[in-house]
Design a protein around this nucleic acid. Structure first.
Lengths: 313, 313
DNA sequence: CTTATGCATAATTATATAGTTATGCAAATT
DNA sequence: AATTTGCATAACTATATAATTATGCATAAG
């Protein structure tokens, strides 16, 4: 069993000696005497019942046990440090905060419920929801301004240093208002969308290249009358009030389609199928609150997904 | 600063009281008296300079501070537990072990160097390298038989419960022996590959659907003379000795192409571009040794990638 | 061959610890 | 109103702790 007598004093001392490979130097930086360090290490070794260092006459080196233990000791100390820090953060700001980047696909579908659920579990954690061009969000994530970004998997070159957790996959849809002229036919000629204003994702959007490929694959090519927009609220309003066609990730309009506010054009978009999930930094392990949020999002995505499957059946 | 007087006794006691919402019950399961628990909690609160519980007359409840601290305390204790366990594992087996799944793309490119580098950092960790159909590897990863799988991103439906860390992206290549008849032309007609034996990835392979799509896109369709294989060593030998054409992820043959043992057919495979990376379980945080291996693979991939970029320039 | 380095050990000391039993006290239960 | 429940506090005690100084000892350096 875990020896309750182990104190963080032992671990920090151990970490320091391991780092410096020297009892004397460690004693110096810890501002205690050399024998105190020797004794602390010996105590830890006794508690663990394993030798952690090989003592030689020019410093100390980690044993196999020591090398293994080193990582875990570091993790343990880091966790406690974060815990102490979080307490003072709560004291200062009246609560922890999570900074969350949200892309349009999920902004209106899974996220509202996921965050609501998270807030029931952890009401005192402030969740700050940030929207914006994905390039910016990924940049903010990489420098630590965001803890988590939810949306489509970004292009490979933007993913360095980031980790992706898959939630579900979705395709891109072409939608229009109900009763749109193109839908008069049972099987409308898709190339006719050139006759209408088309709302397309702008260059910075994750789905931009995928949309381009799809259009080319259907022999549509450049669209003469196009509006580039990131705003789903604009897109939604504009599409419902005009004859425009909106090319947008399915998640952003799924509820509108389900409720009959928008209709999907019968075009094969299977090659636009792509993963939606959670992106985090790869270094700096996710803190417990962020982990809770991740779990909440995953649960909600699973629920969402299964209910979608039901509604299809 | 982190109060060095905090012992794991404090944390485990705190965790137990939080779990049971009761000082008396916690005292019982910890096999100490109730005042001892009260005192321990009070000590921890003094060390942290924050109240962790609200005391009422029917049990105790966590304060905001306590709720926040709970997660970190749990993480810290878990880490130390794992550390102690690892030491006994080392004692028993003479070393830690990591079970690693490797897909063909990286088996001959990044992984050898990555593992070599890792072994210099952690020579006493046994690395077990497993190859096989990706469906099997992902299954083993999910149940914990593997710690890590390196290769292409699997299909979305296989990724539930798994997390993906992107390393780089690569495309699929069509390769043949140098001096292959198709290469007599400068711009050979790609549909002529139907005249030759073609080695293709089998159904279970990750790249199978992508390859199918690509063939259809180039108007090739079903191949009359095909061999399905996962074995890169077979594929390599067979392709070099016959006029067969081998459809394989670029990474698996990159060095052969560079060294002139194989040549790449000039066919546009840009739509087969796909992410290569590390897949891990999403629950159960990666242990420090696995984390080290992940870092080694990432470094090696970065090096590999930059040297490839150089060789292109 | 001497000196310096680096760690271990011993002796010592004030303080902290980790429990214990006994008791108190307020709210909830009967 | 009496009792039970659940926690806090106090007083006490045997150990354990966390340092210290002084000293020893083997190796590496000069």
């Amino acid at each position: 069993m875990l020896d309750q007598r182990i104190k963080f004093r032992h671990l920090t001392c151990f970490l320091e000696v391991a780092r410096q490979r020297s009892v004397v130097k460690a004693a110096d930086t810890l501002s205690i005497t050399q024998p105190a360090v020797s004794k602390t290490i010996r105590e830890l070794e006794e508690h663990l019942d394993a030798r952690l260092f090989d003592r030689s006459k020019r410093g100390v080196t980690l044993t196999d046990f020591g090398k293994v233990f080193l990582r875990y000791a570091g993790a343990s100390v880091t966790a406690l440090r974060q815990g102490v820090d979080s307490i003072s953060q709560v004291r200062m700001q009246g609560g922890l905060s999570i900074n969350l980047g949200v892309l349009p696909t999920v902004a209106a579908s899974v996220m509202p419920n996921a965050i609501r659920h998270f807030k029931t579990l952890s009401p005192d954690t402030t969740v700050k929801v940030v929207a914006g061009p994905n390039v910016m969000l990924m940049g903010q994530l990489r420098v630590g301004e965001l803890d988590l970004v939810v949306g489509r998997l970004a292009e490979p070159d933007q993913m360095s240093g980031l980790s992706f957790i898959h939630l579900y996959s979705e395709h891109i849809s072409l939608v229009a208002r109900p009763g749109h002229p193109l839908m008069a036919d049972k099987n409308p000629d898709i190339t006719r969308i050139r006759e209408f204003t088309v709302l397309v994702p702008p260059k910075q959007a994750i789905i931009h290249p995928t949309v381009d490929k799809m259009l080319i694959a259907h022999g549509i090519g450049a669209l003469p009358d196009r509006i580039e927009t990131v705003s789903t609220s604009f897109g939604r309003a504009f599409t419902r009030e005009t004859d425009a066609i909106w090319i947008i990730s399915n998640g952003a309009v799924a509820s509108d389609i389900a409720e009959g506010h928008l209709v999907e054009l019968p075009i094969d978009t299977s090659d636009t199928f792509g993963p939606v999930g959670l992106t985090t930094r790869i270094d700096s392990p996710v803190s417990p609150p962020v982990e809770m949020l991740i779990n909440a999002v995953r649960e909600e995505a699973a629920r969402h997904h299964s209910s979608q499957a039901e509604s299809k059946a």
